[in-house]
């Protein structure tokens, strides 16, 4: 987990590096951070609803899936993409291959795996199953990976 905001960045789907700030930092200075094209990293413990009113100013939203058993990120993805129609990229960071199918179908649009999975073919896992039983927030599946 990265604590220092200066250190956090992520590569977006256009291969550009984007600075990420915490939800707290974002709310403190929305306009100045928005003007430099900053993104926001959301941890499972964060209240994602706080971002609702400034979504159109956020360049990218990163959801942290590091904690394997903490499923709040899936609800965050659903709320952001389906309910609040966030138009930007939602990247799942610190992702686990065994959970890609859940992330991508909840509304996450791209992902960055944890280093542990370097040698495993993630395509095999991200495709999930040939059928699913529910209309998910985002059924388009994985298009980009980094």
């Amino acid at each position: 987990m990265v604590e220092d905001i200066e250190m956090i960045s992520v590569v977006n789907s256009k291969n550009e590096s984007v600075q990420l700030v915490t939800v707290e930092k974002w709310l403190e200075s929305i306009d100045s951070l928005s003007s430099i094209g900053a993104g926001v990293i959301v941890k499972p413990t964060d209240d994602v609803e706080l971002l609702k009113d400034s979504l159109d100013k956020i360049a990218i939203i990163a959801l942290d899936f590091n904690n394997f058993d903490d499923g709040r990120g899936y609800s965050h993805a659903n709320l952001l993409s389906k309910r609040w129609k966030y138009q930007g990229e939602i990247i799942g960071v610190n992702a686990h291959i065994d959970q890609l199918q859940f992330m991508l179908r909840s509304g996450v649009t791209s992902y960055k795996l944890l280093d542990d999975y370097e040698n495993i073919d993630d395509i095999d896992y991200s495709n999930g199953f040939s059928i699913c039983y529910q209309a998910a927030a985002n059924n388009s599946g994985l298009k980009e990976k980094f």
Partner: peptide, 14 residues
């Protein structure tokens, strides 16, 4: 059951 079978949002509950 079908609906909540490997549900994308609710498979990692408290």
């Amino acid at each position: 059951r079908r609906w909540f079978n490997l549900h994308p949002e609710f498979s990692w509950l408290p």
